[in-house]
């Protein structure tokens, strides 16, 4: 549903949003959780944490005990270390996918909304077509072409999840392009590029920010499905492959890999969900809860 007069974001509104965020206790906890995961991911990527994930620390499929609080996997590797190392994959997948989706979504949506006419028709046709194809088919096709590995995972997920944002941005840009401030910019001879990216886009950034946190958690969850299809991350542990391993293990009573990966994922996805809701409430009261 359209809102006739969306508030123009100004400095004071951003500050206001920030203030209301700060007051939201849950949002602050969620933010802290996200930061913690980010820290773990960073430490793991520079080798401080999780570097020993490939070492054997015990017997094959040892149940959780004092030494290995999450037990061991088939090779006797620590499930805890794997979970930590998996954080790196999850956070990077979330981040890169969200960035790719946002880059495509914003550019495509903004161009369609701003120029209108034939360009708009074409872009709308393209994304309608694109979004009518089931996501799983596109994922499979893209990995078929790209081959395997984390890059393929980034691209497959990034390239298939920009449509929603493009739609929203297009709608917002259409609303904004006839506003006074844009006309003023035209009057002083600003280029299309300048008007669009310097003047209009900052005013629709709140949508992007809300979308970012949604995309982030969506990508983390999707990585599991890719792993199930055998198209996931290769050569290093990810939560997706750990959950996928469970399909051979759980029936024999080995529950700890599933539990550890699910629990780790639960924490960060939940945090992003809560953060996303809080951001939406703070930044765009009109969109509250959608």
């Amino acid at each position: 549903m359209s809102s006739a007069n969306a508030p123009q974001m100004s400095k004071s509104l951003w500050r206001h949003a920030l203030d209301s965020l700060k007051k939201d206790r849950y949002a602050m906890i969620a933010l802290a959780v996200v930061l913690l995961y980010t820290l773990i991911a960073l430490l793991s990527s520079i080798g401080v944490l999780g570097a020993n994930w490939s070492q054997e620390v015990g017997a094959s499929y040892a149940a959780p005990d004092m030494n290995n609080i999450f037990g061991t996997d088939i090779f006797g590797r620590s499930v805890l270390e794997k979970t930590i190392k998996g954080t790196e994959v999850a956070m990077s997948v979330g981040l890169v996918v969200a960035l790719i989706a946002i880059a495509i979504g914003v550019v495509v949506g903004a161009i369609a909304g701003y120029f209108g006419g034939l360009i708009d028709e074409l872009i709308v046709w393209f994304y309608t077509t694109f979004s009518s194809i089931p996501g799983i088919m596109l994922l499979v096709a893209i990995t078929l072409i790209m081959g395997k590995g984390i890059i393929a995972v980034y691209l497959a997920l990034g390239l298939t999840s920009w449509v929603q944002l493009a739609r929203l941005i297009r709608g917002e840009v259409i609303k904004h392009k006839d506003r006074e401030y844009v006309q003023a910019a035209s009057a002083i001879g600003s280029s299309h590029f300048r008007k669009l990216f310097i003047h209009i886009i900052p005013n629709v950034m709140h949508i992007v920010i809300i979308n970012f946190s949604l995309q982030f958690q969506f990508a983390i969850k999707s990585e599991v499905i890719l792993s199930y299809l055998g198209l996931g991350v290769q050569g290093q542990p990810s939560w997706g492959t750990m959950i996928d391993d469970a399909k051979l293990e759980l029936a024999r009573g080995v529950w700890w890999q599933l539990a550890a990966a699910t629990f780790a994922m639960f924490g960060v996805v939940l945090a992003f969900n809560i953060l996303g809701d809080a951001l939406r409430d703070a930044l765009d009261p009109k969109l509250k809860g959608k």
Binding site: Q217, Y228, A246, V269, L270
Partner: peptide, 15 residues
């Protein structure tokens, strides 16, 4: 609701 959404579908099925 949010918590339910934060668990992988594969985990639900397996469990």
């Amino acid at each position: 609701c949010v918590a339910l959404m934060s668990i992988s579908s594969l985990a639900y099925i397996l469990f």
